[in-house]
Write a protein that binds this DNA or RNA. Structure first.
Lengths: 346, 346
DNA sequence: AATTTCAAAGCAAGCGTTTGCACACATTCT
DNA sequence: AGAATGTGTGCAAACGCTTGCTTTGAAATT
């Protein structure tokens, strides 16, 4: 027989309400009673039933995590598992549990969110990507349900968000490339409706203008996704019109595709930069200069923000910016050598 | 105001119990009533409260997932995210939710399990690794709580499990290497208390003996973990005594370490095989022959088994074997070339 | 015509907590 | 001494659903 609050109450000669108040350390209960009740709880091995508690308080202490439509490349990317870890660790340390679901498309995502909300499993929801006109966000806003998004939201309202300073991250990349001698730098991004793509593009444009280089729309391309094949195709299209001396991309996998496209036409002296500091970028040939976006911190920040919100903590801010780290490797050392060996002297 | 089962009842002129029975499609309710009630539910947008339901049924429809102590290398390994995906997809398709937690050590794991069970958040638990004398398993058995483990359990009792046929997987690898000409084959495994290590070792021994090669304990080593550095150190130790012509490992990362150790002493003609078919193995130099263990299938199988169990489905078996696929690449093509180019003619 | 059988639906007691309000008693103030 | 505070607990009504047992009325059986 499972032991309940009434067992504890009977056993320590008080009412169930008193036991409940002891559990919550209510100041109206005398220290004497508290310690007596606590001793009984200990002895009986009492543990509150989360469901009953949730029902009574109408709040669960769970957060829902929506993983984006899993085009395969999203899962070879350690970004997500790292973000999940950040979320998990932060949530655990504050007594929250995480429920997750995998979806195949935006419809399914909305379906899961709907289910989480309506069945009252969770107190808040974490979205792991930010898109323009995101239907998940629209739904959550309509329902006025607490949520946080990793990435800058499309609309500037009270939405909680956590993101890198993508503008500055790219700004630094562009400066590095200019310092390395680039005069005609291309930009190959993911889909244009992701805020991360748009932010990085504007960092690119700003930096060019500040350094006195002309922006050229012929040097800017957007892929259909964040995949290697998408990056390759985009680069190939771009190459029919222009011959850049460096390429800034918004993801390592896009960068791999770009490098592929370049090498295929014999261009092995073009600098390429990726984002997300993937493992493959560290081992492939050439090793890839990349921006580490600190996914675990992004996740932890998101969880923290959301928990602050649902616990109505005072003075909680509505966003958080996570630092990035630019990691320079061979792909910007001056020459893309097929052999992958570092250019001597760089 | 949130709408409840009584609202639906009132609105369609029946009792709450009837509505509940309609929701569960109880045959004792007439079709006429069912359709009337369903129409009302639709119109009102009724959605059952999962907490209340769980409290009444004392079951939640949630499963708990315990991710192993996160030594970093476990997370660069796509095995886990893939397994999670398999679990998630299977669970979702059967109306179950997944809660997960990250732990840093076995104590924490047991703590999370205890919490899941005692607070009654979940109906069953999935363990993602199987160790000898695992305290999690011991605890779960003591509590008689339903769980499933990925990997063969240490004790042969009624424990649910799903695993590859590690014995045969290694058996095939050994045969391949012998066919390629190996006569002195080493085995470098992970920690000996993981059942996966022990199973693969016995496959190795069997295959050797069947093919008429002598087993040599000097050719067998176990690393402290599944990491690159561990693999390297183990191989280095082994090399002080022996000079094998091929190495079977139990993980790609161990294999990377092994290759490193070999190349450092100038041995570039030794065949090496890994497990888990990691991305890095596909791109590094040389590309690595590896066994794909189908992590998503392992995860899905685990979820399926556990759900069958907690729903007391008839005829549910207690384990499931998932096929592996041996993927041959350059590292067994005869010579480990530093350039990573395929040996011509192989 | 009286009795049995059966289908369909309702009653009410849980499931285990939380919490506003009431209550009893002991202090302190006029 | 009577009134006003304060302090520590208990009562009982939620929270929203499930389910064993009953009831009701009609059809089938003797």
């Amino acid at each position: 027989m499972r032991i309940t609050i009434t067992d504890v109450a009977r056993e320590s000669g008080v009412s169930a309400s008193t036991v409940s108040r002891v559990v919550h350390d209510n100041p109206r209960i005398s220290d004497e009673t508290k310690s007596r009740v606590r001793e009984t709880m200990e002895r009986l091995g009492y543990f509150p039933n989360a469901l009953a508690r949730g029902l009574a308080k109408s709040s669960t202490g769970n957060l829902g995590l929506i993983l984006p439509n899993s085009s395969e490349n999203l899962f070879v990317n350690p970004f997500f598992i790292e973000a999940m870890r950040g979320i998990g660790v932060e949530a655990q340390s504050r007594g929250y549990n995480i429920m997750f679901s995998f979806s195949n498309n935006e419809d399914e995502e909305v379906g899961f969110i709907r289910n989480y909300i309506k069945s009252r499993w969770v107190d808040g929801i974490i979205l792991l990507t930010s898109r323009k006109n995101d239907r998940c966000m629209a739904y959550l806003r309509k329902k006025e349900f607490p949520f946080v998004v990793v990435g800058r939201p499309d609309k500037a309202d009270s939405t909680l968000w956590v993101d890198n300073d993508n503008f500055h991250a790219v700004y630094d990349v562009v400066n590095l490339l200019i310092d390395r001698g680039s005069r005609s730098m291309a930009f190959v991004g993911g889909p244009e409706d992701f805020s991360v793509t748009r932010d990085r593009l504007s960092g690119y444009k700003q930096a060019l203008s500040i350094r006195g280089l002309k922006e050229d729309s012929g040097l800017i391309g957007f892929g259909p996704d964040f995949s290697e094949s998408g990056g390759k195709a985009t680069m190939q299209a771009l190459l029919t019109e222009r011959r850049p001396d460096a390429v800034v991309t918004t993801d390592d996998y896009i960068a791999f595709g770009v490098i592929d496209a370049l090498l295929e036409v014999g261009l092995d002296d073009i600098a390429v930069v990726g984002f997300n500091n993937t493992l493959r970028g560290r081992y492939q040939t050439p090793t890839l200069t990349s921006v580490d976006v600190n996914p675990a911190e992004l996740g932890a920040g998101a969880a923290a923000l959301l928990i602050d919100k649902v616990t109505r903590r005072e003075g909680a801010s509505d966003h958080r910016i996570i630092d990035t780290v630019l990691i320079e490797r061979d792909s910007t050392s001056g020459i893309l050598l097929k052999s992958g060996r570092k250019k001597p002297g760089e």
